[in-house]
Design a protein around this nucleic acid. Structure first.
Lengths: 256, 256
DNA sequence: TCATAAAATCTCACATTATGAAAAACAACT
DNA sequence: AGTTGTTTTTCATAATGTGAGATTTTATGA
């Protein structure tokens, strides 16, 4: 959980709790999350947890894998998602931009968003040459702090929140080559100065990336737009040039 | 609302109500839905409604357009959706199939799912020649009963539920050329006999379609896979042949 | 195979939480 | 400025959700 808007407590405890659980399940990923995990992480009483989960499953917001006795996001969630993507949110606003950038450069590009401690891929266009990316296809995610797409967002949050997230993710960084909390902090500092995030083969050898944050509401960096390119294709100035392209497109998106 | 699993009443009234509202907002579409609408359609007390909506907005499951004073699906919904699409649900299971069919035939193909009284486009691959479709891009929807993609699902529901849905949609049919409830009933009967749904230029002149239902749980037709083709490209037997292709792919998807 | 542990599910008395009528604040017309 | 319709807040009331524990089901080991 983020420390932030938990316990909105406008008189809807049950709903707040349901959202906590939805979040935990969403974070749980492809493997699914078990009841025990959920009670532990949410701090909720087992019975309460169970009751809420059952209801959510009943409404198909969650699905239950009876075999593995665990919970995942449900069919209705996927449908809602498809509908939401159509509304006047980031995804549909970026759709044109993505396609246009793809045509202009021929490179792989993706739209990332923040969900709790993770950075989730919302949309992407594959480039002419297939490059391995951190997140894989739409819906894939990495811990915030990993990769330029996520650093671009992280770097422009309040320092408190940054620290909170880094702390929460600290053990997960180990899975990404020689990434550490301190390195993340250094990358953040550089990114703030530069205005955009870059990575030159530090996470996946031979693969570089540039990402620019999107301040959808003018204040909070809730999303980012970024390239993934083969380091081999880099010439001096390529990254700067790509950052400019992203900036332009984002500017066009943000002011309506 | 569907008569079905409303009021699950396992001791989570508030959650049930929240889902009702989420559904209404999702149905409301691109224009957004106002509080008044929501209270009217849900039958909930204004204060209760307002409280729930506020909480949902707080969690970004819904978003509020302060200007137009109405509610839409929120950013978090889109993110959940992206994640859900990645799990072992219909979407990811159909992904390969979609791409393969697209390569085999070169035609436009889409995956539809049922949401209340509507049929929503979950995924699609565009064909070599651009054809106009009823639903447009991902997230687009039509009332159940309109178009082969939705008839394919509707036809294999219980008769009671069919009638319920047709009644609910009856006024909306008028927007689609000369479609009427009776015509929908006739199409359903034909589809049941045939095993798949077809349309030859009756909804959009010059555009034909074939769709086969997917019984993801073995019983309920929760989704469908279908082609949209130019009538001009039709030769005798094309539709049958396409239906076979769909059947094959669906068979492969359903048993694991 | 049976015994043991662990996790999931159910039950029910209790009080915290959610409810909705009504009033207040706010917009939108005329 | 007056009037109407919509949104937001308040608060006493009770219905809803809570969670400790009992029970059942499933997993693990000997």
């Amino acid at each position: 959980m983020t420390k932030s808007p938990q316990s909105s407590s406008g008189g809807a405890q049950l709903l707040d709790r349901a959202v906590i659980l939805l979040d935990l399940v969403a974070d749980g990923g492809v493997n699914g999350v078990t009841l025990k995990d959920l009670t532990a992480r949410s701090g909720l009483n087992t019975a309460t947890c169970h009751r809420i989960l059952n209801t959510l499953v009943g409404h198909k917001l969650l699905a239950r894998d009876d075999k593995k006795r665990c919970y995942r996001l449900g069919a209705r969630m996927a449908i809602y998602g498809a509908r939401a993507a159509r509304g006047p949110g980031i995804i549909s606003r970026c759709e044109v931009a993505l396609t246009r950038i793809r045509r202009r450069t021929g490179d792989t590009i993706h739209l990332m968003a923040r969900l709790n401690h993770d950075s989730v891929c919302l949309d992407r266009r594959d480039g002419e040459c297939v490059v391995p990316t951190l997140t894989g296809s739409i819906g894939g995610s990495v811990p915030l702090g990993v990769g330029p797409g996520s650093i671009a967002m992280l770097a422009f949050l309040d320092e408190d929140e940054q620290e909170f997230i880094i702390r929460a993710n600290i053990e997960r960084y180990a899975a990404y080559r020689d990434l550490t909390a301190d390195k993340v902090r250094r990358l953040i500092a550089e990114t703030r100065d530069r205005g955009y995030a870059i990575d030159v083969g530090e996470l996946i050898p031979g693969i570089a990336g540039v990402s620019v944050p999107i301040f959808s509401d003018g204040v909070t960096p809730n999303a980012s737009l970024g390239f993934t390119i083969l380091s081999a294709k880099l010439t001096p100035g390529t990254l700067e040039q790509y950052a400019m392209i992203l900036r332009e497109e984002i500017a066009a998106i943000v002011d309506q």
